[in-house]
Design a protein around this nucleic acid. Structure first.
Lengths: 354, 354
DNA sequence: GTCTGCAATGAAAACGATTACATCCTGACC
DNA sequence: GGTCAGGATGTAATCGTTTTCATTGCAGAC
């Protein structure tokens, strides 16, 4: 590997000059700059990153810490982060699949000194607490944290708004008795969605009815059981909002087993807009979550603070969700071809999934 | 940030001793080791990675270069890489979404000097060629490259075997006239799957019939059109193998539109086992691709060579595929609950997809 | 009591860049 | 012609480690 010294010698200048060329200093004449560049590329010289960050105390890399997420969401977040970071000429160091607090902390420590800032998804209270001391002295942006008390930057998904919009939409079809299959207790997304559901009801003068709120855990099976529970009521609801699409799938299959038609007998709404949703029969009305933007915004919020090496000022941002109308809620509007909509989200999707 | 000097001063030893403690040198007495560790942790000392790699010329990081992949596959590959790398105490630097050769090369260059080895997925000939000079002097493992002539390590998916098994399986139900909807020309996976299809036919004494091989491009729409084309023959095939699941979906919806029942009137097989497949009606018989293992094996193959800083010896490995029997091919065997099978692949899936 | 050998430690030279400061040169101005 | 400004370049200190090569101290051999 050629070093800056080799280039300097070969070009007949000092290493300071070569360095200046690579740092776009205005203190180099155009001739020299040109000459040095030529020699450097002939020698296949690439500045040594380690030496650089040793002296500048900057690594030009950001760390990304994610729990073990399901495919679609994960890859979109990373994609958003990756592209935004590349734009800013930052490298991305990832570490995912952190089941517990210990491995998460270990991961943070192993990244220390190798990154200028951190983007982390803390799925629960415990993990957020674990990151706390780090947050106080280092640029950190949290993805989708819970109670917004963190003293750092955060980006959240508009779970509340999405759920609210979904319920209001169901109401626009005349539904008055709307049930919900909830997500796991303690889960931040689940709680926000429930809150959106309740608020939407109250805003239309309906007091949420506990027996219409059945527990769930985001799995297909929970959706199935939830439906069974709801159908055992003497008065069955006319619409059900499942707090995520997987539960909506289970729900719909239970309804089918019970001989009920969706949406004629009962309307169904989901959340997430996972890839499957558009292929269900009927296609599922749901709430699209823009994971790409989540990642992108996180980078844009983080980068300025990496330059100062200071904690990110408390600043809370929200990524909007979008109601996706399909037939499961009774919508009959002519819809744009889904495949085109999808396409827009993955402009370079040229390669085969497997 | 505390430096090694701070620790040395505070502990009353030389920096050499502190360094030795952190490098597990046997040349330190147990007392000293213990003492230094205590001081270090009190000062919250973490060795500076930049300084370390400057002197050792090793970064303890591997780069991962991926094209723009669809969600599920992408995240599983990364997960495999991440976990294996963590085991070996390596960091992972990712860069994805490389639509063209230029951005790919740029990404490689921006990683130079920051990584000890590279795992890259080169989706086509052009990209492989672009990486060629790099491959000659640096540890590289290619994921799923085409013709196995690359002078480096490679890990491929057993596309041929999977397609072969699928066709043989269809034949076991008595099908003699089996069509295929092909993937895009030039695509490596597509070509291997086609080859597997043809070989399976020949091995059972059937000469592949060109009119039973209709073109496709891995999209749902292509599957639909493929079905239309096949149904327009005077003699319709009794089974169709779609070269990926998305095309199988389009295919099945076209068959439905034509009033044909799957599998009674016509059997269907797919490839990839995307998440949707088990929810289709009927659930799709397909070939599972183990992306996790792909990533994991790549790391295990790469790591030893990073220590020598030498190119990876040409070594070609294959990740097996697995036939997943569901109802679309006519299988009536009692099947294990799918949700359990899925679970095994994502042991820590505690967090909500969105 | 000296010498040898070995375990434990320290001093100092790298590693390859950035950058403050010094120096040189050129041309403008009086 | 001398002075001065300022652009272009060079010198050298510095970043925080690892590692080679002393150096020290002590145990055991003679």
């Amino acid at each position: 590997m050629a070093t800056i010294r080799d280039v300097a010698r070969e070009a007949g200048v000092s290493i300071a000059t070569v360095s200046r060329v690579y740092n776009d200093s205005p203190l180099v004449s155009d001739d020299t700059r040109e000459h040095v560049r030529r020699i450097a590329s002939r020698l296949d010289y690439i500045p040594n990153g380690a030496a650089r960050s040793l002296i500048t105390n900057r690594t030009h890399a950001i760390g990304v810490l994610l729990p073990d997420l399901y495919g679609e969401f994960f890859s979109e977040v990373i994609r958003g982060i990756d592209l935004a970071a590349r734009q800013e000429r930052f490298q991305v160091l990832v570490s995912s699949s952190h089941a517990d607090t210990d491995t998460l902390i270990a991961a943070v420590n192993s990244m220390r000194g190798r990154i200028d800032g951190l983007i982390a998804m803390a799925p629960d209270e415990k993990t957020t607490a674990a990151l706390d001391s780090f947050i106080r002295k280092f640029p950190v942006v949290l993805l989708n944290p819970g109670p917004l008390r963190a003293e750092c930057g955060t980006i959240s998904i508009a779970n509340f708004d999405g759920a609210y919009a979904m319920v209001r939409h169901l109401q626009s079809f005349g539904h008055r008795s709307i049930a919900i299959v909830k997500g796991p207790a303690g889960n931040i997304d689940a709680e926000e969605r429930l809150r959106g559901y309740r608020t939407a009801l109250r805003d239309s003068g309906i007091e949420p009815e506990p027996s219409l709120e059945v527990p769930g855990d985001f799995t297909e099976a929970a959706g199935y059981e939830g439906a069974v529970k709801l159908l055992s009521r003497q008065l069955r609801p006319t619409a059900v909002f499942a707090a995520n699409d997987y539960m909506a799938i289970g729900l719909m299959s239970a309804l089918g087993d019970a001989g009920l038609r969706v949406p004629q007998d009962i309307a169904v709404g989901g959340f997430d807009d996972i890839a499957i949703s558009q292929y269900l029969s009927p296609p599922l009305t749901t709430v699209r979550v823009d994971a790409y933007t989540l990642g992108e915004r996180a980078v844009l919020q983080l980068i300025p603070f990496t330059r100062m090496r200071e904690p990110v000022l408390a600043h809370h941002e929200m990524v909007p969700t979008q109601l996706v109308l399909r037939r499961s809620c009774g919508s009959t509007e002519p819809l744009a071809p889904e495949s085109l909509l999808r396409q827009r989200r993955r402009p370079n999707a040229e390669v085969e999934p497997a």
